[in-house]
Amino acid sequence: MTEAVVNSKPFQWTAKFLAKFGLSGRGLVIAVPTLWLLVFFLIPFIVVLKISFAEAMIARPPYSKLIEPTDSGFAINFSFLSYQYLVEDGLYLAAYGSSLRIAFFSTLFALLIGYPMAYFIARSSGQWRNILLMLVIMPFWTSFLLRVYAWIGILKGNGYINNLLLSLGIINEPLVMMQTDFAVYVGIVYTYLPFMILPLYANLVKLDGSLLEASSDLGAKPIMTFLTITLPLSLPGILAGCMLVFIPVVGEFVIPALLGGPDTNMIGRVLWDEFFRNRDWPTASAVAIIMLLVLVLPIMLLQKAQDGQNQDKSGI
């Protein structure tokens, strides 16, 4: 069948046509994905950067032009107004702070829950390991939005938990769980747990069992073996898992919007509101630029962790 494709007239014509423009197969193969990503990934950031220096106004589009033609040529209107807002209005700084705090603690919780699971899966045998792994991966394939939604029914005032506790007589008043930071933590840990488990598992499964036997043979108790052998060797996995949770959580919108209360102040939500409610595009852009800067370090850490993981792989 492939024979037919390669030898078919249209295929040959296309090749000849491209060759006319000096595009060899190799050049074309490189050019297509590069151009796509340039136009739809890199340039958009430049546009965001540009607009973050503009001023909001009621117009279409709702921001001032950076370079405007005037009588004597061009005028350049760089405005730092948006950034000034961010610094002066405590709301933005508080939102960055609370985003980082929520991201940090939910990453920690996810690690504490995910590590034993990853370890157990990595140490279980054959068929069991595959089944457990599949159970971890399956939530990836089910709608994220709907899984967050499921928690509303569980946590709300007349939800499943309150109904159960009330009917058992354990509580008399419904607990307030929805629209609190607690609900946001639950939602985030629940959603991002698989992102923590998978890199940890990938790391732990490579751990040579004979290292643990050697450690035990040399007189280390299991807890010492864990602290001195397993934990240090799994650091790249821990780092990768933590960054894979931390980075997207900082910018998370859906979970605070659905489970959080009015005082759950996360930066993703601020950006969303700035854009959709206030139609203040320059400020939304400035919020995005600062968020990117905040995330540069975690992204570099992730890169490092993944390089480490890959080196492990090639080292074997």
């Binding site: 993703g268 595009w281 995005a288 968020m291």
Partner: peptide, 12 residues
């Protein structure tokens, strides 16, 4: 973060 990707593409 999705909000950044979304915003940047819209502005583009």
């Amino acid at each position: 973060p999705e909000v950044i990707t979304g915003l940047s593409l819209l502005l583009l």
